[in-house]
Amino acid sequence: MNNFDYLKAGDIQDAIGKSGSCTDSSYIGGGTNLLDLMKYDLAHPTTLIDINHAGTQDAVTETENGGLRLSAFATNADTAWHPLIEEKYPLLSKAILAGASAQIRNMATNGGNLLQRTRCYYFYDANVPCNKREPGSGCSAILGYNRIMAILGTSEHCIAVFPSDMCIALAALEATVNVEGPNGPRSIVFADFHRLPGDTPELDNNLLPGEIITSIDLPPQGFSDNYSYLKLRDRNSYAFALVSVATGLELDGDIIRNARIALGGVAHKPWRVPEAEEFLVGKAASEENFAQAADIILRGATGYQYNDFKIELAKRAIIRNGMMALHPETQLPGALPSA
């Protein structure tokens, strides 16, 4: 890890200004991803701009349209355990609580969570080819041990997975990301925030240089009656998802009025297929219907040998999580499969 200058930003404009005036600077939130990468010598900013005090650390404020605004500078834990989130957006709360560990969630900021980088083994090893780390060097994962890699939306240049749990729920909830930058503020709908690798695998998302995430807006519909987050991984906690599913349902008796399904652990971004959700509208909340929706969602899924299982696993996870959403009260800590 190299040394760097450390600057504290007093507010957002200050942060943007500081970022504009030095090359190779990085914002730092909780630091749980950035410092990890720096210690592995994978990120080398020469200036760190501490933005923890640039905006409010109060996790949640209510918005005029009946939704909520999450501060980008609040911690994951404060967000997940905020009474309004627990009450109105339990899906988000569960997803956040399924990620990392209690200690890390006490540090990680909401903004940083959106920008965490892939956990691809080859990305993390500075001495092997990786197009994301070093464009044009090749992708070691495609022919390597790719158990944790993507099955959807991949390209010949990169098959990495975006590892966040929180973002899977945010995708299902159709959140909006508010950013501020050298060219002023803008809002990005969640589906457009993260990118597929295509031929620019070095870009994880559409944030522009110098831009700062200030908040995340949640629309009023929180699916608080019927929701479920299911995370499948190699141990019961403190591990990244091999496949995760965020499901929110609006029911009328047995009949689905509105459905949201987002998949994690399978692609370079949270994976949503609106067509599958539309398919479910007006249908019974049954295993058969979720299975058909799963087929739509997983259209075009391809395995790379060691991750072939994810296709079948994702299908079963979608079905199971659909059924779990009918009984949110039986859900287990850690987003484990429940009855």
């Binding site: 450390y6 909780g30 630091g31 990890d36 210690k39 592995y40 560990s101 200690q103 006490n106 540090m107």
Partner: peptide
């Protein structure tokens, strides 16, 4: 030294954190 084990846990301003992943 990478937030993966919890051995460095301390309580900072009332909250448990891993002290290796902060400056």
């Amino acid at each position: 030294d990478h937030g993966q084990c919890g051995a460095c846990t301390v309580i900072c301003d009332g909250k448990r954190i891993v002290s290796c992943l902060t400056l």
